[in-house]
Write a protein that binds this DNA or RNA. Structure first.
Lengths: 345, 345
DNA sequence: CTGTTAGCGCGTTCAC
DNA sequence: GTGAACGCGCTAACAG
């Protein structure tokens, strides 16, 4: 550690300047009884003057919490640059926690095993008061660890799979129903689903909701392929889909990158979007507007999602019993990549 | 703060289990002389078993550093989702610091005044050992504050404007020269520059380098317009550029979003890229590959940039005298948005 | 050489 | 309103 010539102001310094004890200063600073209003205001005055802030270390040591919450993002660093979800999510989190003097401790690692280790480290080093858990998987090992450590946590995902932990979920099933209904309205009878990785809970939720909605409306999901959310895997999946018989006339893609890939695959066969194939993306990002053609998408406010998760976690951390909640359902934004089913289908 | 039933393992617990004093345990854990090899290994063994980690709070309180470095991102939360720079940069930082047991404290705020306040808060609360400073501006107020607080910092930007602080810069001037040379090679005699915001140091650096290179090669920069890096401002700027006489036949855009905007503006006048207008983007991101047409770009490894900055900061924080350095110059990746100058120009 | 004891850093809180 | 103890890891001074 570099030596630092400038001394940080401490309570002792305020005590000395105001001629009272350190204890009194603490009471005054925390708005507790035990000091006269007069000395209190003198103390506050001096504190402001010298720019005093409580030492995070001392507070944490005392057991007063670290004013820090943690998020581990399990992604290949290279992928992060293009994945719009996390930055928007983090921005939403920041909006809430910075107001309350909390900070976000971030870790990016591609290794899932490392996450458990990080949780343990953060816990035993007392670095965070609470944790955001994203990319919920079925029978997720992280849940057990968080419960074992009794580390306050907010799960970002379906409450049904959160094993009792507070969860902030999105209504993916509702969005899926809306999407299928829209496609059915346009006359499509055979649709495909380019899903995300199978291990994620929300992948399963979406698949089932799409399937159920399709049955209800008397149309068919002729093809479901799992991707890894990358553009390439989307293109490959769409290619396979186009080979299959009977061929779908519309596809729902679990994220925007795979949707762009799908458009590319269609084009390389001289199929036009949306004339020959309707494409609907999930998780509307700026990418959907930039794509050629602009992509219709199930749009949700990811940043608001972060806001909701942060509110819940802070509540939990402060001893409240935050209730899980589900922010608004995604809405279908039509940008023109959906069309009536081609004649003869 | 929520009560936590599970007790964090402490040095005292290890001392009790091994039957030695807490002091001895500390010596053993830190690899210092004063304990026999035998007891040392017993202590290490027990420490591993119960999963001991030093309390970050206690260490920080003792003056041993916080094992945390900070980054304040000054952006509108909404913009962050599409700006690929920061996520890639953060990923690079993480790669280095997580290896060394450091964590990244992040703050996202749109308010530039707030940054100074955050630096002060982080300093007086002793929350970070060092800071990354991005988006360097000319006569940047943050530099003075960091020096006043003697807070170790690495400036991400041109060393010439870092006022003595350690800087990790990119060789924008070199990249600019390469870009202009390429355009001159293709026969362009009049080029335009869609620059970034004027207040940023690197904007000025690029403008001057482009101007100098153009003079040297006997071609002309007929138009330079500042944008705010958004797609819309890029489109508007390109529109203005296309109105001007004499009209440029190629444009260099300071980021990828404005380049996409420029392509759009050109298209809305029925100009084709690259036949009628060559477009070159800076800061290659996946967007350049996704655009229609794919955009040629000055590509640099942003993640490696983060790696270099993190290495420098950790060195500094640990008392080393990190030297500023400049990672490799961006290379021009041609994806087909550049072409020979149209006939008659 | 091996180990122990005591006190520090800083804010909080309890007994007086 | 005061003094002292506490939380946890580190280290200087000291004892066997």
């Amino acid at each position: 550690m570099a030596s630092r010539g400038v001394r940080r102001p401490t309570i002792a310094e305020i005590a000395e300047r105001t001629g009272v004890s350190a204890g009194a200063v603490s009471y005054a600073l925390n708005g507790r009884p035990g000091v006269s209003e007069e000395t209190r205001s003198r103390i506050l005055q001096v504190a402001r003057e010298i720019g005093w802030m409580p030492s995070a270390a001392a507070r944490a040591l005392r057991g007063g919490g670290t004013s820090t919450v943690g998020l581990v993002i399990t992604r290949e660093p290279a992928v992060l640059g293009i994945e719009p979800f996390f930055m928007a999510f983090v921005a939403g989190i920041e909006q809430v926690i910075s107001e309350e003097g909390y900070a976000l401790l971030l870790q990016v690692t591609a290794d899932p095993a490392r996450v458990l280790q990080t949780y343990r480290e953060w816990w035993s080093a007392n670095r965070v008061d609470g944790i955001f858990l994203t990319d919920l998987e079925r029978s997720d090992a992280r849940l057990g660890l968080l419960k074992e450590l009794e580390l306050p946590a907010v799960v970002v995902g379906d409450p049904a799979f959160a094993e009792g932990l507070c969860a902030v979920g999105s209504d993916d099933a509702g969005a899926a129903r809306a999407a299928v209904a829209k496609l059915a309205d346009l006359g499509h009878r055979r649709i495909a689903h380019l899903a995300g990785p199978d291990r994620f809970v929300h992948t399963r939720v979406r698949s089932e909701a799409i399937g159920a909605a399709a049955r209800e409306l008397g149309i068919e999901v002729v093809c479901e392929i799992h991707t890894d959310y990358s553009l390439d895997s989307g293109a490959r999946a769409c290619d396979r889909m186009l080979d299959a018989q009977p061929r779908a006339t519309a596809i729902i893609c679990d994220n925007d990158l795979t949707a762009v890939g799908a458009v590319r695959a269609a084009r390389s066969r001289d199929l036009q979007v949306p004339r020959d194939l309707s494409v609907l993306a999930w998780d509307d990002s700026p990418l959907c507007q930039l794509a050629e053609p602009p992509l219709s998408a199930l749009s949700r406010d990811v940043s608001a999602y972060g806001v909701a998760a942060a509110r819940a976690l802070l509540d939990l951390v402060k001893g409240g019993d935050a209730v899980g909640l589900t922010p608004s359902t995604a809405t279908l934004v039509d940008r023109g990549s959906l069309a009536q089913v081609p004649a003869g289908n």
